[in-house]
Design a binder for these strands. Structure first.
Lengths: 147, 147
DNA sequence: GCAGATTGTATCGCTTGCGATATAAAATAA
DNA sequence: TTATTTTATATCGCAAGCGATACAATCTGC
């Protein structure tokens, strides 16, 4: 009746669902490592560059501190990272990996990408399709993140 | 160092972020209607076809009942819908729109698509790009939802 | 130096998502 | 029929997300 409101035509619902399903596809591998998906994202950021203030991580993941702070607190409690006040700026909390947090990288490397590839192996998309998909998503992200 | 773990190459992070940002783009219009994004999805399903059991709505949205049930309970409390036991099968809860829930469709129609279009107007993607994007997401959803 | 604005992070309250488990009605087996 | 299994929904607990607000450290203007 109202094509504007037909759910199957909505990009939003596809994004929402694909995001949930892909996150869910990561879950078994991440559970084996004792972490959640958002925690994995934080680790990805820290594995690239250790010792970053909370705000840097938040900017990288496009999340607010009211999401990041409790996330980091839980990860600290699990012994994955430490938080210490910045020396030049005492307002900053510098987040650093612990040995345990660093060690997870090797395990993740050997299990996570392989596990996800396996689950998506039945997907008929090719490398070029994924590239285009990523490009489109980047455009949407760029547009909406600077408003 | 490990290209497999570089966050920018990960499709998952893009999906996760794009989904959050697009949902966030809906929020102002939906807040004006007094609903949240998942509640909007439930309404979209009911606007298409009123009087559906909980399980049907769950299948349509690819959500579990442990997500849907509390969501419907909150919506019932807000007077957007009613839940009554099925007559042929007393286990089923038949979800039906109230007048208030039905009335929201007109308002949504005049504000939501327009509002979102406005926010995405700065996005350089064309109609064909959106079509391809939707197609790729559908492939991923189809692959992961039947495993 | 100091009052006011800004910045970096934290807290609170609420709604999702989801794994695990529970419960009651219906279907099936015996 | 009665016991067993399956199905439809609900409950519980916990981790995100996020709007609103708080708070302390730093910066700015004077």
């Amino acid at each position: 009746m109202y094509p504007e409101l037909q759910i199957d035509r909505q990009l939003c619902f596809r994004l929402y669902t694909a995001s949930r399903l892909v996150t869910g596809a990561y879950t078994p591998m991440l559970t084996a490592l004792g972490i959640t998906y958002p925690q994995y994202l934080v680790l990805l950021v820290l594995w690239e560059k250790d010792r970053q203030p909370v705000g840097e991580i938040a900017r990288r993941l496009l999340l607010e501190t009211n999401t990041i702070t409790p996330l980091l607190q839980r990860m600290e409690k699990q012994g994955l990272l430490s938080r210490t006040r910045g020396e030049s700026d005492r307002r900053q909390q510098i987040v650093a990996l612990t040995d345990k947090g660093r060690a997870l990288q090797e395990q993740a490397l050997t299990t996570v990408p392989r596990g996800l590839g396996l689950k998506l192996s039945a997907c008929p998309l090719g490398a070029e399709d994924y590239r285009q998909l990523a490009e489109g998503l980047d455009q949407i992200i760029a547009t909406l993140s600077q408003q």
